[in-house]
């Protein structure tokens, strides 16, 4: 029972981690919280559903899964670029509150656009790959959970490689250290920022699809809860810190599943725990588990 719950927590946490990475990558460079990120996730889920309906074989399967993920990730990534260009870049030199408000505005626009033009109903989301239960002797787990967990891990591994080893990834880290000096080195910082939104958006798109498969349905307002929880995860791990986002996501997923499973009436309260954690972290250690204590960036 405990091991099963732990694995369930890791599965849920892996989705939070994917979303949290988007918050943390953007914060690392621009020191701003991209509050439209949760809506990018939601749009990714809808694009994934559309891709499945229009393109994939009705029986689903692995090819369908890869196809749905790729289309959703591309759409969300491009959406991230467009949002940055239209809503944040013009405010780059403005007071820090301005892009934050702009982000909330984008978030409202996106969820209302889907509400008005796509659907205001709960739409069922396919499992894409037929589900079966796998028994490991001491525990039983669903193939869907395994799939979500490993898809997330693969995406995180790809991100890790990209950030550590590729030229663009190193430029992202350089920009996160010092944007002005990166420009002096001949790095086109606007390109790097756009690339960061592309990557963050693509991860959110993948998370939107996985989240849809996990819960079996999607709605125009689905982004809010996982968005806020992933934001909590990013803060818990230390916002701006990539490993921290992954760690925070897993910790939060495990905590939520455990609390829902073991506390009396826990499952009804499950959405509350993330916010308790958020308040607790902000009170006790605002820089997060792996975050450095840096003063205001000059």
């Amino acid at each position: 029972m405990f091991i099963e719950q732990l694995f369930n927590g890791l599965v849920l946490g892996s989705i939070y981690s994917l979303i949290a990475l988007g918050y943390t990558l953007v914060y690392g460079i621009l020191m701003m919280i991209n509050f439209a990120h949760s809506e990018v996730l939601m749009v990714g889920a809808f694009v994934g559903l559309a891709a499945y309906t229009l393109l994939a074989p009705p029986a689903g399967g692995w090819v369908a899964l890869v196809l749905v993920l790729l289309v959703a990730m591309t759409a969300s990534g491009l959406l991230g670029i467009v949002i940055e260009k239209l809503a944040y870049r013009p405010l780059r030199q403005a007071a820090r509150l301005a892009p934050l408000i702009s982000a909330i505005g984008v978030s409202i626009i996106l969820s209302n656009a889907v509400f008005l033009w796509v659907s205001n109903q709960l739409l069922s989301f396919p499992k894409v790959v037929p589900e079966q239960s796998i028994s490991l002797g001491f525990m039983k787990i669903g193939s869907l959970q395994i799939l979500i967990f490993f898809t997330s891990l693969i995406l995180m591994a790809v991100l890790h490689f990209m950030v550590q080893k590729t030229k663009m990834g190193k430029a992202m880290r350089a920009c996160a250290d010092d944007l002005t000096t990166s420009g002096l080195m001949g790095i086109d910082v606007n390109k790097v920022i756009a690339f960061t939104f592309l990557i963050g958006g693509a991860l959110a798109g993948a998370a939107g699809v996985l989240n849809g498969m996990y819960y079996g349905s999607i709605k125009y307002n689905l982004g809010f809860l996982p968005g806020v929880k992933a934001f909590t995860a990013a803060v818990l791990g230390g916002i701006g810190n990539i490993a921290g986002a992954v760690l925070g996501g897993f910790l939060l997923g495990i905590l939520e599943v455990m609390a829902a499973g073991y506390l009396p009436n826990g499952s009804q309260w499950k959405d509350v725990f993330a916010f308790v954690v958020l308040i607790g972290v902000l009170l006790i250690r605002p820089s997060g588990i792996l975050g450095e204590r840096i003063a205001e960036k000059i």
Partner: peptide, 22 residues
């Protein structure tokens, strides 16, 4: 720039690679 402004969380080699970015 004044105050060196090296990239503190990049390795020495990565710092040098950033010089050659373009």
């Amino acid at each position: 720039p004044e105050g060196r402004k090296i990239f503190p969380r990049l390795t020495v080699l990565e710092n040098l690679e950033m010089g050659a970015f373009s």
